[in-house]
Amino acid sequence: MKIRYVSLAWLAISLAAVADDARLNFVSCPIVQDTPTVPCWLADYHGERYYLGIQTDVSAEFQPPYLGHQVLVEGVVTNRPRICGGIVLEPVKISVLPELDRSCNTRLPIDPRYTIDFNPRPPGPSLGRLAFADAQPPGPQPVKPPFVTKEFTVFFDFDQGITFRHPRDLMNIVHYAQETRAKNLTVTGYRGAMKLSDGTVLSESEAIAEKRARQLAELLAGAGVTAAMKTSWQAEPVPADGIDDWQSRSAKVVVTP
């Protein structure tokens, strides 16, 4: 029995080690690879090419990066068959870095070795529905009493405030605050950091936490939330350990009825 316990403990440690080893966090120029259907998005790191995702539409979890900018990649290496020549990272989170980098301009022509299905979304008009319509979270639902304090977390791109990604998050908060006739609402902004696989730690700009808190409060008030609002922010970056660091780029909104 004793031997068995030791073996299980060793196995657990080994799995954790494998999982950590499989994580890959890096900054690189994105590459777009054309195909006969939709393009693939790739990125090179340490002499290897990685597959990030494909172009679909706004309903997709993966939303492609920009040529002209470096991209911050947080992914897990898989042993799935390569796609468009790249080792598949899954899950993968990307964030476009705000400053321009004109050297990021690689667009590769169609290579007969690489094909992508026509589904879920062709490069032109859709078939009448968004590619991932079924996976979309439901819109705001009716809130029934008893009304309770609820916390919402809003995530951001690196060094960015509110963008096109956020209307759904904002609407959920507005809806809950209005349905519960919230009396108080607190917004706390955080400054994220990211530990890359080479050990480098990237921190967001000093002012970003304050910007996120103030911007969220302003938008919620502008959308009709009448609760008394308090804003605060944490100017020191959240410690980065290389594991899901994207979650540190955030703000918390607490709605109290």
């Binding site: 997709a60 939303q63 492609p64 920009y66 096109f164």
Partner: peptide, 16 residues
Amino acid sequence: INSVGLGNPIKRTCAT
């Protein structure tokens, strides 16, 4: 258009 979740560049049509 390139900044709203589709990427830059996107391979699409006029109707996008």
